[in-house]
Simulated scan of single mutants.
Amino acid sequence: MTGDFDLFEVREPETQSIPFVYNSPHSGRRYPLSFLDQSRLDDRTIRRSEDHYVDELFGAAPAFGAPMLLAHFPRAFVDVNREPYELDPKMFSETLPPYANINSARVAGGLGTIPRIVAENVEIYARRLPLAEALERIEAIYKPYHACLRRLIARTHARFGFGVLIDCHSMPGNIRVAGSGIHPDFIIGDRYGTSASSELSQAALEFLEGLGFLAVRNKPYAGGFITEHYGRPARGLHALQIEVNRALYIDEATLAKRGDFNALAGSIAIFMQQMAEFVADYAGDTALAAE
């Protein structure tokens, strides 16, 4: 199914020196030929759901001492930022198993574990899929990806007694905060305070604003399955989702990088360094308070 490329990789630092794990689950851009044959979309349209080049924007993570997990498979093929079996019964030629979640808002929107659409409600497939196809993708890609992410988080928590997962994404340039004319450059998602401490979220916002960006919290993106599933602040495990506005760094029509792509990556590297320095103090204070 995907034997022509590695499914994902972990870019490791020489030594993990900070309690961070960076994750880029939607920036994969290697499309299995069998998937392209199934799709009714052209080569550019099928890429509309990618978090374009987010793995490169946050690529400095290992240099700062943090591992980075990144997908090579595309989000349109299988979405690991979902429950394992959020499946749309209209997509498949057989009845779904009883454990499938067919009623989630994400399934209703066409963006389940096996997506039905790419961005802007464009249908991916010309015909229904065999159920075995979906289950194979989940077994071969989804489950190994999450097993790897769990290992990285557990290793980090065991080493430092504290851990921060930064789940890295991008958003369309036309996104705005509902009820306002605000078009944010970045959105920090913490599931409304349940996946990370407010101190971490506020620090992230302040660092981005200090770099000259317009940053907001949770609206319209509060974090997906990964943020919700792995964030356990009471146990010293914090998960933040960060969304970058694509209009800052690509031409959304051609998907070509803009000339200031490297400048944005440099600003994000400064942000990452600032977060590492903040967490070094914050984790120490938290540990002392617990004693």
Results as ranks from 00 to 15, higher is better:
230 Y>C: 10
169 H>T: 05
104 S>I: 07
161 G>H: 09
182 I>C: 10
168 C>Y: 04
173 G>M: 03
102 I>A: 11
180 S>A: 03
179 G>Y: 09
109 G>M: 02
175 I>V: 15
226 I>G: 01
170 S>N: 07
220 P>G: 11
133 E>I: 03
95 T>D: 14
209 E>C: 13
179 G>R: 00
114 I>F: 12
182 I>M: 12
171 M>E: 04
197 S>E: 14
186 F>I: 01
199 E>W: 10
119 A>F: 13
88 D>P: 06
162 F>G: 03
91 M>S: 14
223 G>D: 02
99 Y>W: 13
200 L>S: 10
109 G>W: 01
106 R>C: 07
120 E>Q: 14
220 P>K: 02
219 K>S: 13
91 M>K: 02
158 A>W: 09
169 H>V: 01
200 L>W: 13
211 L>W: 09
135 L>G: 01
171 M>I: 06
87 L>M: 04
144 P>S: 12
220 P>W: 03
225 F>Q: 01
91 M>C: 11
164 V>G: 03
145 Y>A: 07
156 T>D: 09
114 I>P: 02
197 S>K: 01
181 G>T: 06
84 P>N: 02
124 I>D: 06
120 E>N: 15
186 F>T: 03
130 P>Y: 08
174 N>Y: 14
144 P>Q: 07
109 G>I: 05
166 I>M: 15
103 N>F: 11
202 Q>H: 14
158 A>D: 15
93 S>F: 02
145 Y>V: 09
151 R>L: 09
148 C>T: 14
179 G>C: 08
101 N>T: 13
151 R>E: 14
89 P>E: 07
181 G>I: 01
126 A>Q: 04
102 I>Q: 12
103 N>R: 09
214 L>W: 01
200 L>A: 10
114 I>G: 08
222 A>F: 04
199 E>T: 13
163 G>I: 03
178 A>S: 15
144 P>A: 10
228 E>F: 11
206 E>M: 07
165 L>E: 09
116 R>K: 13
212 G>Q: 00
107 V>P: 08
156 T>K: 07
215 A>W: 04
230 Y>P: 11
177 V>R: 05
108 A>K: 10
96 L>R: 08
114 I>K: 01
97 P>C: 11
100 A>M: 03
106 R>M: 11
186 F>Q: 00
196 A>S: 15
167 D>K: 00
84 P>H: 12
157 H>C: 02
137 R>V: 12
127 R>K: 15
138 I>E: 08
94 E>N: 09
92 F>C: 06
174 N>S: 14
126 A>Y: 00
210 G>P: 06
95 T>G: 12
106 R>V: 09
160 F>L: 02
137 R>E: 06
120 E>R: 15
229 H>T: 10
142 Y>K: 04
215 A>M: 02
131 L>V: 12
228 E>V: 06
162 F>P: 02
195 S>M: 03
101 N>W: 05
114 I>W: 05
130 P>N: 06
98 P>M: 01
91 M>Y: 05
149 L>A: 11
125 Y>W: 04
218 N>W: 00
161 G>V: 04
205 L>E: 12
148 C>V: 13
140 A>N: 12
214 L>N: 13
126 A>F: 01
153 I>F: 08
89 P>V: 08
166 I>E: 12
101 N>Y: 09
200 L>T: 11
84 P>G: 05
180 S>M: 01
104 S>P: 06
156 T>G: 07
194 T>V: 10
167 D>N: 07
86 E>P: 05
112 G>I: 08
